[in-house]
Every structure is written in structure tokens, then in C-alpha cells.
Design a protein around this nucleic acid. Structure first.
Lengths: 387, 387
DNA sequence: ATAGTTCGTTCGCCGTAGGAAGGAAGTGTG
DNA sequence: CACACTTCCTTCCTACGGCGAACGAACTAT
């Protein structure tokens, strides 16, 4: 439909269709974990005759491991195959202001190795050296690298100084891809969290979700139709900029909304309400204070109202159906989440479930795994069941 | 990733891959209109040997028409093929409060036949009779039917009484599909407009856009990554419900925002500013008034500010990169559009282009064509170049 | 005219998908 | 305990589609 010139790659070549089958089997096995060839025929639709050599190949490559025969009612018992998560490793690299943390995980998201490197010298060099070192003899199994960058990763406002210029645009991705020989994806950390929760967390049963992450700023990750949507400039989910209060104006790349309702801002108010040292988890502190202190309860109400308006805004635009609370917002207790849910339901045009995210710190890692695995499959357009 | 059970369809069968090739050629030809086999090899990546029999088949089926030889610098001239738009017809059915309008169009969006039927008896029956009648001997070429329903078509708030129960959910789609034997898609009219502008209108050069349609209410259609996104409950784009004014509350299924800034609301103010009969095009009237009347100018400013905040909200959530003004919003003159653009740029976190939609009334029709054509191809997951 | 160039087609090989039949390994039953 | 029966997996075989390569076709340039 668009008048972009069609790319010169052949749509269906023989190698492709074989690879598609491979991926179909692998992805099925990854989900089901332990299954027989008979189940594979059912799930993938491939004929047994087709599967036999393919499975043999996958066993030889270490993707599948033959286990003993499974239970059987009648007839020959199924020879069970177990998916070997170690057959596919991914690297998740998180860029932080003055260091990078690097993790190697298998396709379950189990961390096989991790390391934190102080940022010295060129980022790209550092990553190119660290990843193979960490992977060790598992390097051949490396399927992809996902890089989590704080703030907006491409286009949009630049929110984090250190990564400017290096992260901006493609260079880092392209360079790493050449150097490591595997697909490299780079994205906003909030988007990765959303992908993680969608893959194995509180959103694994739905196709659409919005993850609202409250920290120093407020950001959201949007998953629609099973895919993280970044928008044209990569600024989708920049909900801190929502013009919810007509009077407010943003300052220095900080959205008007997040200036008032981020974790930082709440922390300040909490300190004012209960003088003492600044709490690590201001929202937790606020929730506790609110049980006894009326002023705190009132302020908690304000916070919930503000967040609810933010959520409603997202529902009106994208209708994700489920909203996951992450970061400081995940510190809300059940009662507060329920209140938030009620506020949202009252104003949103569509039924929306509000829940806490469940993966916490590990969300980014799982997101990276999910990205890297799907990037490995991305060479060819997906023929796999997408939802 | 999700634990939905994998569907039992085979991923790559021979018939599929053949169909994929067919579609690849057809879709290329649809875009380029007149081309040679040599160009097809370049554009689709298929080898000449593969194309020869395929093209022969398509000629026999009427998809392609052989034209004379084209110009040539040196060597054998290319035998030109022309795509026959009449080979694919689609029906676009618009449900209106008391009648339905039905159009048959070819894949250019040229209307071949149209008819308006007063709503009497069962909607499904009526459509099932009208479409084949209208299509006449072109019926075998019918590739799909798209139905445009006002308001939210599934889930979400019900906005239009007459279609309740019939449109709600799947029944009408399924029934028609059985009866007519072609894919039937049903959607919100604003979503269809967005699809239309994306296909052949002011958004044909981008993958993401948001169409803002101002009429009795305010609605938006969201295209991300080349696809209309409806959200989990089909309420994506219900921007009339945006909680932009904390004090406001919605009434009776009308969003708080649209109650104040829809065409109706503007019309009332315009009447107040310039007493007389209610204008057909209140925004046009307002723009003209604003040239001379200060109060009108101020009010126009308010309208633009309100709309800009709405657009900014959408940018913060979905970052479409381009916003198309449709309906009453398309009545703005260049200067007003420019002002709107400026307002948006000042507050949005990402560069966003604001333009008028260009298809006007025909947007829904083109959207229906686009839907119906892609629905015909939707049986199999797209292997075609998606962006 | 002849060489050169570009197009399109035919031929034939190769590889893959999948039907069919057969072997393998269990459970139930007389 | 043998026999049928069921189910699972494999092997054999065939058919067919994709594409490389050679070939014929059609036109330009010199």
C-alpha cells in the first residue's frame, strides 16, 4: 500500500521455508518444554514425515534432548523430547549512567552469567569484549543481544546525557552486530520491561498491554497485537509529557506531568509529611503513612487520581486492556490498586484491568531475552502463530 | 511466548508458498500498475523462471493484461503487463442510523456501483441481497466486504442505538462471511478513514499515523506499523474521553472532552458569535469570522489549543509522527493548521507533522477497499514486505 | 549485416513436503 | 501367554515447485 519500493529479497526461497519450519518447531518446543513428535505434528501442522529428519537435526544441534518414553494409554509410548533452554543464549546489556551491566541468559530467562563493568573507554569496545568473555564456551549458542538504554533511545527528547551520541540512532547497534555476528536490538528500558511482562510476566495471557513505570520519570511501554510499539519517533509511551494540567509546561526535557507525579516528587512530599530521612521506597512509605495520617491519605488519593488520569489517557488512545504498574507504582498495596482500578473504570471508555507488574528487576532481562529471541527469528517475516 | 495453544494449521505447505508468491506478484502489480516481467523479478525477488508460469496463470485469471512492448534502449523490449483493477472488487457497506449505503469498488477505489438502501427488515439479509445484486456479473471478482459502523464496533461504550445487538461482536461478520463467501471485516468508520488515508491519502508515505476526526463526537484512528490498531476492546482512538480537564466528567457515553470541542459544540458557539442560521461547516465559518471578529479569533484559539492538547496526548502515548485532521478539523485553513502544528511542536515529546486529511468523504471507501484487499490476503500470515 | 544487449522461456536438477506403508513398542483381552 | 489392537515413529517413494543455466527472441547501435 505504501509506495516504498519493495525490497529485493525473494519472498519464499527454499532455505527460508526450511528455516521457517525449524523456527516453528523450536518455538513450539520452547513453549511446551517437553513433548513428543506426535504432539509436534499436532501443534505445528507439519507431517510426521517432515518432522523426523528435522527433529534429528535439532537433536544433533542440541536444541532438543531425547528423554525416555512418556506415559501411554495404549500403543507405543511417545518418545519425549525436551527443549534445551541452554541451546539459545542471549545477552542483555543495560546501559547505566556510569557503568554497564551485562547478563547472559538462557531462553528461560535464567541468568547464566553476569557482570557489571565500570564505563571506561569506548562503550562498543567494552561490550564487544565483555559479551564473548561472559558467554565463554556458550558463545556459539548466542542468538542475540539486547541493549537497554534509559530514556528515549532514538529520536524524541534526549533524556540521559552519557549515552547521547553513542546510543542515538543506529551506530551502536550496527557496530555490535558486525562485531558479534548476532542480531542486536536496542531499546528503551521501559519498552523492554513491557516486552518482558508480556513474554513471561503479568501480561503473558494477553496481546495488548501498557506498562506504566514510575521512577525518576514516568514512562510507559506499549504492547499492541503482541508487539512492542515504539511509534514513529520512538517516543511512544512518553506519558510524562501528557498535557493533563493545562497550566503546566515542561521544563528541560521533563514532562509536565512527571515533574509532579514521579517517584522523586512523591518522595519529597513524603519527607515533608513524615520528616526524617528520604525513604528508599516512597510509595510504600506513603501507603503506610496513609493508614494513620489523614494528610498522607489525602495525598495518596491525589497520586492515585493523577495516575488514573494518566492511565485513562492511555486507554483512550491505545486501549491496551491491561495496565501493569511497575517501579514505584508497583509499591501500591492491593487496596490502592483496587482504588486505582475503580478510578480508571469510572472514566475509561473500555474495560481495563489494572495490576501490578510481577517481574520487578528481572523484567528488563526477560524483555531482552524476548527481544533477542525474536530478533533471531526476525530475518524472515513471522510465519509462526503470532498471538 | 503467550501460552495460547498453537493453532493446528500447517506453517508452510506447498499451496501456501505458491499463494504467497501469487500475492506477492499481485500486490506488486497493484502498486506499480504497469510493469514488465523483468521488473517483477527485481521487485519481488522471484526468479524469472518462477515468474513465467505464474504470470501466465495471472493473465488467464484476468489479474494481468498483456500490453504491447514497452520502450527499450537496447535489447529486446519489455512486454508490459498491466494490472487490471477490475479483477478485484470489494464492497464497502456503511451503516447509518436509518439506512445503509453500499458501494462496489475496484482495487483503485473507483466506485463501480453504489446504492443506498433504507433500513427495512434484517440488516444481514439486506446486505446479503444488495451486495450480489450490485456486483452483478462482477461477483466472482469480489474479494471482500468491509462494513463501516459508526462509533465503537465491539466492546467499549455503545454509541449508536440502531446498530446495537446486530453490530455488536461477531454475529454480523460471521453471518455475512458464510452468506457471501468472502472475508468480511467490520470496523469503526474512523478506523476505516485512517486506513484509507494510510493506503492512498495523506499518509501513504508513512507507517504510522493518527487520524483525528471531529464531527458530532471526536474520534481518532490509529495506524502503527502499517496496521490499524484497535486495541484490546476496540476502543483505541476514543480520544473524546481523554481526561484533559480534571473537573469534567463524561455524560451518557459522551466523553468529557468531546462534549466541549466537537463540531456540535463549536457550531453552538458560532451561532452565538454570529447569530443567524446554524452553519453547515461551523469550523469554516469560525475561521472566516476570526479574521474580523476578535471574540471569534479568541475562540478559535481556544479550539486550536484544545485540539492541540488532544493531539499531544496521542503523541505522548503512541507517537504516530503524523496527525491528519479530518471532518470538521479539516476545515481549518492553512494558517490555522500551522498554528496547530506549532502548538503541538511546543508540547509534544516527538516531532509530529500535522496535516489535513485529503480524501474527505472518500476516505471510508478507500479504507474499506484497503481492508477488504488485505483481508483477502490475511488467510496466511504476510510474507510480503510489510512496511 | 553483425555484434551487442536485454527479455523472456524452456529444460532439467535438486530439494523438500507429504502420502503410504511398515516397523516398534506398548496395552488390553481371551 | 499369545494375540489383536492402538499409537508412535520411521523409511520409502513420489510429486512438485524453485531456480540455475542455457537458449531463443527482439530490438539497438555501428
Amino acid at each position: 500500500m505504501t509506495d516504498v519500493v519493495t525490497p529485493p529479497t525473494s519472498p519464499v526461497s527454499r532455505e527460508r521455508s526450511k528455516e521457517i519450519k525449524r523456527l516453528s518447531v523450536i518455538s513450539t518446543a520452547r513453549q511446551v518444554r517437553v513433548l513428543s513428535r506426535a504432539e509436534l505434528t499436532e501443534l505445528t501442522g507439519l507431517s510426521p514425515a517432515t518432522l523426523t529428519p528435522l527433529v534429528r537435526e535439532l537433536i544433533a544441534e542440541g536444541y532438543l534432548i531425547e528423554r525416555g518414553p512418556g506415559a501411554s494409554r495404549a500403543g507405543r509410548p511417545r518418545a519425549m523430547l525436551e527443549f534445551n533452554p541452554r541451546a539459545e543464549l542471549v545477552a542483555a546489556v543495560a546501559l547505566e549512567p556510569s557503568r554497564i551491566s551485562c547478563e547472559i541468559a538462557d531462553s528461560d530467562g535464567t541468568v547464566v552469567a553476569h557482570r557489571t563493568v565500570r564505563l571506561a573507554g569506548d562503550i562498543i569496545d567494552t561490550i564487544c569484549r565483555s559479551v564473548p568473555e561472559l558467554a565463554g564456551d556458550g558463545l556459539p549458542a548466542l542468538r542475540g543481544v539486547a541493549i537497554a538504554a534509559p530514556g528515549v533511545s532514538s529520536g524524541g527528547a534526549v533524556r540521559l546525557a552519557p549515552s547521547v551520541g553513542l546510543v542515538e540512532g543506529r551506530p551502536i547497534g550496527e557496530a555490535l552486530q558486525r562485531c558479534l555476528g548476532v542480531p542486536v536490538v536496542i531499546d528503551n528500558d521501559v519498552n523492554l520491561m513491557a516486552a518482558g511482562e508480556h513474554a513471561v510476566g503479568a501480561g503473558s495471557d494477553v496481546a495488548d498491554l501498557l506498562l506504566l513505570h514510575v521512577a525518576d520519570g514516568i514512562g510507559a511501554g506499549l504492547v499492541l497485537d503482541g508487539q512492542v510499539r515504539r511509534g514513529s519517533g520512538g517516543a511512544a509511551g512518553e506519558v510524562g509529557f501528557l498535557p493533563l494540567d493545562p497550566a503546566d509546561r515542561g521544563h528541560d526535557g521533563v514532562g509536565p506531568f512527571e515533574a509532579r507525579w514521579s517517584e522523586n516528587a512523591i518522595a519529597e512530599r513524603v519527607v515533608a509529611l513524615a520528616p526524617g530521612r528520604r525513604p528508599d521506597a516512597p510509595v510504600t512509605a506513603l501507603v503506610e503513612l496513609a493508614r494513620a495520617d489523614e494528610r498522607a491519605a489525602a495525598y495518596l488519593g491525589e497520586v492515585l487520581a493523577a495516575w488514573s488520569r494518566l492511565i485513562v489517557s492511555c486507554v483512550c488512545v491505545a486501549d491496551p486492556g491491561r495496565v501493569l504498574l511497575s517501579g514505584a507504582a508497583a509499591q501500591l498495596d492491593d487496596a490502592a490498586v483496587a482504588r486505582l482500578q475503580t478510578l480508571v473504570a469510572a472514566a475509561a471508555p473500555s474495560a481495563t484491568e489494572v495490576r501490578r507488574a510481577v517481574l520487578g528487576d528481572r523484567a528488563v532481562l526477560h524483555g531482552a531475552v524476548s527481544y533477542a529471541l525474536s530478533a533471531a527469528a526476525a530475518g524472515l517475516p513471522t510465519l509462526l502463530p503470532s498471538p
